[in-house]
Design a protein around this nucleic acid. Structure first.
Lengths: 148, 148
DNA sequence: CGCGATTCTATAGCCTGCTAATAGTTAGCA
DNA sequence: TGCTAACTATTAGCAGGCTATAGAATCGCG
């Protein structure tokens, strides 16, 4: 696949291909832990702040509540998280990591850092900063376009 | 959601969010034509070079053959493409646009250009070029990491 | 010529996005 | 108090990624 096209025409498409391939690579490596990219991200998030409700997690990971619900379903079935009652509001559920998940966190962290290093190899700090700024700008633009 | 994190930590994640949101926005706008982002891209590709086999299309759109097969299934059911026999090799199928699809091509082109303009608003040519280069580099890195 | 290897498409099954619609709970106000 | 509105999570259903596997057709070499 040629990636030498006009940036204006090809950037968005190339971004899509990139995120798909990063995810596929991560999934392949994480499969030996019974994890996927989404599950690993949720796991890491919970190691940093816990307990959170499903809604808070959905916000934090920037997905819709049903997506989060099903992600949790899978991890609960796999024994990685538990749903717990929230005192004072029976609508909400706190999601907490199981022991098993906590003991995997370190490995997941290593895996994530390793992949990040590989993916970002050969890119300068400055290029990275510019790219990050551009991507955030695009995200803002999409949000603006979506509201109109 | 705060996007002000360290680029090294947040870039890949932000990229994922961006591509999802671009896709969702495109899907919402294209729904009145009975299209989705993936179908629209396939449609546009076929207007430029046609006929192609499914394998060639999968390569061109950088997806796996089963993904392309199902995408074509849906578009065939929707009357947008036809599978035609390839003379000389009964394994392959040529995918061709129907009249209905061809008459939509212009509108899809407009929709795509419009969205691109909105998403890339306020980003300089230079920033765009750097970002494109960085993303291509990341794609290379992922490909390299995947082969090892 | 014929058989094994290769190639192309299709199917099955999984995961993760989304929207829309439901059910249960809480809150707020008359 | 009691009704309505708002909020939280779930379910159902669709789309589009992926891998693995199967089936049909072709190719190539002995």
């Amino acid at each position: 696949m040629s990636r030498s096209e006009d940036p204006k025409l090809g950037l968005i498409r190339t971004l899509g291909a990139l995120t798909r391939k990063v995810r596929t690579l991560f999934d392949a490596r994480a499969s030996e832990y019974g994890l996927t990219e989404a599950r690993a991200r949720l796991l890491l998030h919970l190691t940093q702040s816990c307990p959170l409700t499903q809604g808070e997690l959905a916000d934090a990971m920037d997905v819709e509540p049903p997506t989060m619900a099903r992600l949790i379903d899978g991890m609960e079935a796999g024994g990685l998280v538990r749903r717990e009652a929230v005192p004072g509001d029976r609508r909400q559920r706190h999601i907490v990591l199981t022991e098993a998940a906590q003991s995997q966190a370190e490995a997941v962290l290593v895996l994530t850092a390793q992949l990040r290093t590989e993916v970002l190899a050969g890119i300068s700090e400055e290029e990275l900063a510019i790219t990050h700024r551009v991507v955030c700008r695009m995200l803002d633009n999409v949000a603006k376009a979506g509201r109109s």
